[in-house]
């Protein structure tokens, strides 16, 4: 209750202290795995397996050596995986966003024949197990000679019905018809109106959809797992999964991969964490509208 007197002068009263403690516990829960990974990626194999405190550093802190091993193992394959993931996330994210913005705007602002039908079909597609598509897509792509190429990963990630839905809702609410009509009255064509008037208004949602699509591509596992067999095309998720398989299977031989897997997991999350935190101001706006209406 001392907290009461201390914060009495503030606008927000003391009652939130227990809430903040509760929140504190939750934060600890959400951070524990990160802490474990940070600590244990500094250890070598004996340090990892040989007992000792699991939540604190061993005597030998070996980030430099582990990092060197991570980026040189198997000809520096890990660095390639990170680059691949970046490529897939950027290409898939940007492509999906362009398609979603256009389609969302089209659905929201034009009453064309088949609009209602195609919109409901698209919403129904949200329910299709994304993984269910992997099997037939694989067979189709292998017929086209596309399996085991970067396109096998990028093309399917262009499809983002949720992005279309989000853009549709946002365009409907944030782009008033009156402004569009005014632009048209001024003699601007439809395309020009879209780029000059509508697009700037839709910007927060564009950032949101871009981030969500990029994250979806970055996180993709099942699809590239099935599509790719050349390990130099793997995204980092599949690569680490394969390492875990190698480390778990017999015969793995002379190198212990476990410390590389832990450090690899840590390094792989850094780009996304940075992207999220630097961009968070820009993209929450898009979500609020998408969620509310």
């Amino acid at each position: 209750m001392t907290a009461r007197s201390r914060t009495a002068g503030r606008q927000r009263p003391q009652r939130h202290f227990p809430l903040q403690v509760l929140l504190g516990f939750l934060v600890v829960y959400f951070l524990v795995p990160f802490w474990w990974v940070i600590v244990n990626s500094s250890k070598d194999a004996p340090g990892l397996f040989g007992g000792g405190n699991t939540m604190w550093f061993a005597d030998r802190i070996d980030y430099v050596e582990n990092l060197t091993r991570l980026f040189t193992y198997d000809g520096g394959i890990y660095g390639r995986w990170i680059l691949n993931s970046t490529l897939y996330a950027l290409a898939g994210g940007v492509g999906a966003t362009i398609l979603s913005v256009m389609a969302g705007y089209g659905f929201a602002k034009y009453r064309f024949a088949g609009r209602r039908f195609s919109f409901s079909v698209m919403l129904g597609a949200l329910m299709v197990p994304a993984t269910a598509l992997v099997i037939p897509t694989f067979i189709m792509f292998s017929g086209l000679g596309l399996t085991n190429t970067i396109w096998a990963v990028i093309l399917p990630s262009l499809l983002n019905p949720f992005g279309v839905y989000l853009m549709h809702v946002y365009a409907r609410d944030a782009v008033p018809d009156e402004i569009l009509d005014a632009a048209r009255a001024d003699g601007a064509g439809e395309i020009r109106t879209f780029f000059r008037v509508a697009f700037p208004l839709m910007r927060p949602a564009v950032v949101t959809v871009l981030l969500l699509s990029a994250v979806a591509s970055w996180n993709n596992y099942f699809l590239p797992l099935a599509m790719l067999s050349d390990n130099r095309l793997f995204p980092v998720t599949v690569g680490l999964g394969v390492w875990q398989g190698v480390a778990s299977a017999n015969n793995a031989g002379s190198t212990s991969l476990w410390s590389l897997i832990i450090l690899g997991a840590l390094v792989s999350v850094i780009p996304l964490v940075i992207a999220f935190f630097t961009l968070q101001r820009h993209w929450r706006g898009g979500l609020s509208v998408g969620g509310l209406r």
Partner: peptide, 16 residues
């Protein structure tokens, strides 16, 4: 990035 990677586009068909 796509262009940088040595196995770009069609040359990777059936790679591996």
């Amino acid at each position: 990035i796509a262009a940088c990677s040595p196995d770009q586009g069609k040359s990777t068909a059936n790679a591996g």
